[in-house]
Computed example of a mutant assay.
Amino acid sequence: MRHVLKAAALALLSLSAPAVADACKGRNLFDTMPADRKARIENAVRDVPFREGLLFQAEKGDHRITLVGTYHFGDARHAPMVDRLRPFITDAAALYVEAGPREESRLTEALKSDPSLMVDPDGPTLPERLTPEEWQQLSTAMADRGSPAVITSRLRPWYVSMMLGISPCMLDAMQSTGGKTGGLDHLLVHQAQKAETPIRALEPWDTIFDLYADLTPAQELDMIRAALPSAAYADDYAVTLTDAYFSGNVWQIWEFGRFDAYDNSGLPKSEVDEQMSLAQQRLMDDRNRKWIKVLIDGADKARANGRGIVAAFGALHLPGQAGVLNLLQDQGYAIRRLDG
C-alpha cells in the first residue's frame, strides 16, 4: 500500500497533462492520423479563444499579470521558458501556482494518513461494477502501473482514471528520482525560491477531492471507460500531447482526447461529449473562475509596490470561453501574447 500511496501523491500532480520523459519512447499520433480526423480536430479548435500560446501578459492600468501555461512533468524543452521567465519571477511580488510546496506537502501527508481518500473500503469493488472484459483490461493496465489487481479493485474511480493517463515508464522514472516530476511548475517554484519571491497557491491543497465528490456511480465508471483505450498506448499518447504543448497548440490537446475517445472508447458520441463537458467544467472552468479573484487581488496588492505577479498553471487553463485569459479580458485586462 505504501507504494500505491506514493504513486498516488505523484499522480495527483498531473491534473493537466499526461506524463512523458526522455526514458519514455513513443510516436506522435498526428503523424499517422487519418486526414479526416485531423480536419475535424482543426475545425473544433478554430474558434476557441486563445487556443494557441503558452506565455501571455495581462494588463489593466498599472495592474500586471504574466501568465504561463505549464506542463507538469519533466522535459528538456522547458529550459528556454525557465530562462525567459527568470527575470519576471525575480521582479514579481509573488509567483502564483496551483499548489506550492506547502500544499503539496499537506496533500502527500493526507494521502499517507488516510487511505480512504483513494480507496473505497466498503462499497462494491470495481470488478463487481465493470464487465469482465473491462475489468480484465483495467487490471492489466493498472498492474503495468504498479498496482496489483487486489488493490486496484478497491481504488476510487477518479484516481484510477488519472493513473491510466500516465505512462508506466514515467512512473518508474519518477520513482527513480525520488518522486520529483521536474515539471515547469516545479522549475519555476525553484526559481522563485532562489530569488526569494513569495510563492502563493491558487487554490486549497484538498481541491482535488472536491472535484469528484458528487459524481454519480455511472459517471464514475464512464471516467474509467473513457480513459481505458489510451492506456495501452500511453507512451504514444503522451508524446503526441507533449509535442502539441511545446508547439503551443494548447486546445488541440483537448480536442485530440475527444476525437480519440469517439473512435476508441466504445462509448456513444453523446456520452463522450458528456464526459468531456463534465471534465472541462470540473477540472478547468469552475477552477478558473475561482482563480480570477485570487489573481486580480494579487495584482492589486503588487501594484501598490509598483510590481506585477507571475502565474503558472496547467496550459489547458489558458484557452476557451471560460479560460483564464478570456475571463481576465472580460474584467477589462488587455491580453498580449509573448511567445508568438
Rank of each mutant, 00 (worst) to 15 (best):
S230N: 03
S230P: 01
S230E: 06
S230C: 05
A231T: 10
A231D: 11
A231V: 06
A231E: 03
A232F: 13
A232S: 12
Y233L: 07
Y233H: 13
Y233P: 00
Y233N: 09
Y233W: 10
Y233K: 10
A234S: 15
A234F: 03
A234P: 14
A234E: 13
A234H: 06
D235S: 12
D236E: 07
D236L: 03
D236C: 07
D236I: 06
D236H: 12
D236T: 09
Y237V: 13
Y237N: 14
Y237C: 09
Y237A: 11
Y237G: 06
Y237T: 13
Y237R: 12
A238Y: 06
A238N: 05
A238W: 11
A238I: 14
V239R: 14
V239I: 15
V239W: 14
T240Q: 04
T240M: 06
T240A: 05
T240R: 07
T240C: 06
T240V: 09
T242C: 12
T242E: 14
T242W: 11
D243N: 13
D243T: 15
D243L: 09
D243A: 09
A244S: 14
A244Y: 04
A244D: 08
Y245V: 10
Y245L: 11
Y245W: 13
Y245A: 06
F246H: 08
F246V: 11
F246P: 05
F246N: 10
S247G: 08
S247D: 14
G248R: 07
G248K: 04
G248A: 04
G248L: 07
G248M: 08
G248W: 12
N249M: 11
N249C: 12
N249E: 15
N249R: 14
N249H: 15
N249S: 13
N249P: 07
N249Y: 12
N249V: 09
N249K: 15
V250N: 07
V250H: 08
V250L: 04
V250S: 06
V250E: 02
W251P: 00
W251Q: 07
Q252G: 07
Q252Y: 06
Q252P: 01
I253N: 10
I253W: 04
I253Y: 02
W254K: 04
W254Q: 13
W254N: 09
W254G: 04
W254Y: 12
W254S: 04
W254A: 09
E255N: 01
E255A: 01
E255Q: 14
E255T: 03
E255F: 00
F256E: 12
F256W: 10
F256H: 02
F256P: 08
G257Q: 12
G257W: 04
R258C: 03
R258F: 01
R258E: 03
F259N: 01
F259I: 03
F259Q: 07
F259T: 05
F259K: 01
D260S: 11
D260I: 02
D260W: 03
D260T: 03
D260N: 08
D260F: 10
A261C: 02
A261Y: 00
A261E: 05
A261K: 04
A261T: 02
A261S: 15
A261H: 00
Y262A: 00
Y262D: 00
Y262R: 01
Y262P: 00
Y262N: 00
D263F: 00
D263M: 00
D263A: 14
N264F: 03
S265R: 10
S265W: 06
S265G: 04
S265Y: 06
